[in-house]
Design a protein around this nucleic acid. Structure first.
Length: 271
DNA sequence: AATCGACTCAACCGCCGGCAG
DNA sequence: GCTGCCGGCGGTTGAGTCGAT
């Protein structure tokens, strides 16, 4: 028997109560069944839905497939800088509360955000030999990576002003803000101004952050710092981070924004 | 062209809380 | 109050893909 089929039983001798339960990847036919059923009957009551729709899947599996893949408003493709920034912001606030974070990224699922965090963010933490939940890593994010994302956002909005057609519609569709107070999230430590949602793609008043004026002498640096030492102060950490940023191997995989880290210019960050 | 390792992400698993009986 | 069911959530897995050698 295929490992993707499980015989389910409720301990009854009645053969009608036994059925094959499918597992693994969904077929197009199953997708169509689920979509069609939900479009006519709505979602919810997933176990009953699975049976009524004629799907040999658990209710959980149906729910997951619908919420993470089939739902019409699911947004596909890479996370925008805005979305990445928001994830970093919200994660520093709430930790691994993926569903809560996902509520503030329309069209993005908790699963997607979780995967992003595990594959992109945690990878960087591993390379730095630092716990991704540590204060040092959070500081590195806030003092270096978030500003980079903001710069990219500003760059995008600047390009948009001159040639709006170049900007992906995804950016314009973002509503990354707290619905309760209709203000975009911001990082106090970055002195970033609070923005109205519709300001996201307009001129962004960029934070006051020393990183902007940081001098990276990249040619003289080759070693990745060891962030694991608990004695290292935050300021030392920042210096070490600046050194680490010169490591193209490490930098190239940051946030899936490879082009970000190809700078080799002394005294400036050449995006 | 073949192999191998790293990476991605859809899907599953286990746990927990809410709720109805 | 107890029990069982269900939905939701976070953690984990593994098949598929891609790039390097």
């Amino acid at each position: 028997m295929s490992k993707n089929i499980v015989i389910m039983s409720n301990n009854s001798s009645n053969e009608d109560d036994q059925f094959e339960l499918r597992r693994g990847p969904w077929t197009l036919e199953e997708d169509n069944l689920l979509i069609h059923y939900i479009s006519t009957n709505g979602e919810g009551r997933w176990n009953a839905l699975a049976k009524c729709a004629g799907l040999k899947r658990t209710g959980k599996s149906c729910r997951l497939r619908w919420l993470n893949y089939l739902k019409p408003d699911i947004k596909r493709g890479n996370l925008t800088p805005q979305e990445q920034l928001l994830i970093l912001e919200l994660h520093s606030k709430w930790g691994n509360r993926w569903s809560k974070i996902a509520q503030h990224l329309p069209g993005r699922t908790d699963n997607e955000i979780k995967n992003y965090w595990r594959t992109r963010v945690q990878k960087q933490a591993r390379q730095l030999k630092v716990d991704c939940n540590s204060k040092k890593f959070v500081e590195a994010i806030k003092s270096l990576w978030m500003p980079r994302l903001l710069e990219k956002m500003e760059q995008s909005s600047s390009i948009e002003k001159h040639n709006p057609s170049l900007i992906t519609p995804l950016i314009n569709n973002q509503e990354p803000y707290d619905k309760e107070n209709s203000r975009m999230y911001s990082t106090d430590s970055m002195n970033m101004l609070k923005l109205q949602p519709n300001e996201m793609t307009k001129d962004v008043t960029i934070y006051n952050n020393s990183v902007q004026n940081e001098c990276y002498h990249v040619e003289s640096l080759s070693q990745q710092p060891d962030f694991s030492s608990q004695e290292m102060s935050i300021s030392e950490c920042e210096v070490a981070e600046a050194h680490w940023f010169s490591d193209e191997m490490a930098a190239a995989s940051l946030w899936n924004m490879d082009e970000f880290w190809q700078f080799r210019k002394l005294g400036d960050i050449d995006i």
